[in-house]
């Protein structure tokens, strides 16, 4: 099957199999920042933006992407670099496998939460699992990055 969509600002005609999910399509097209961790929409690793809002690409059907704007971390180099510096300053990326998806959620959160608190941040990020860090270092990084009082 085929459809036209926009990935990271570029219009593209996607070839895909019926029933294919966006995470698989994106990886096949070389957007390798998109990781998959669970097969059940539970871990947040595959988070990308759909029309600017974070979605789980492993449960988003590629067939529904006609005329949408998909954004992966590859398109957010400057923003991602900025947040990455905060995260690595705490050592909180560890294995790094959850980090791109997590970062996509954090960057969306920064745009969305006008008055972030530790509680609202935790709530926003609840769907992003991490087995390495224990989350506390991630929060230290975010508090500094978002300027939470």
């Amino acid at each position: 099957m085929q459809l036209e969509t926009t990935i990271n600002g570029n219009k593209i005609v996607l070839d895909f199999a019926g029933g294919e999910f966006l995470a698989e399509t994106l990886r096949r097209y070389g957007y390798l920042s998109v990781k998959e961790g669970c097969d059940t929409g539970s871990c947040g690793l595959c988070t990308v933006w759909l029309d600017g809002a974070p979605v789980l690409s492993c449960t988003t059907l590629t067939a529904r992407m006609e005329d949408h704007e998909i954004t992966t971390i590859e398109a957010l180099n400057v923003e991602a670099e900025e947040f990455a510096q905060f995260l690595v300053a705490e050592g909180a990326e560890q294995c790094g496998f959850c980090a791109p998806g997590f970062t996509m959620t954090v960057l969306a959160m920064r745009r969305e939460l006008k008055h972030p608190t530790v509680e609202s941040i935790n709530h926003y990020l609840a769907g992003n699992l991490c087995r390495c860090s224990g989350y506390k270092g991630q929060m230290r990084a975010i508090v500094k990055y978002m300027g939470v009082e």
Partner: peptide
């Protein structure tokens, strides 16, 4: 010292680095 991991920033930014990234 509190030294960042040498591969940290690249991993966070999703630079291809894991088995499935390098083997496709």
């Amino acid at each position: 010292k509190r030294i960042p991991k040498i591969d940290g920033v690249g991993l966070v930014k999703g630079v291809p680095a894991y088995t499935s990234d390098l083997a496709i």
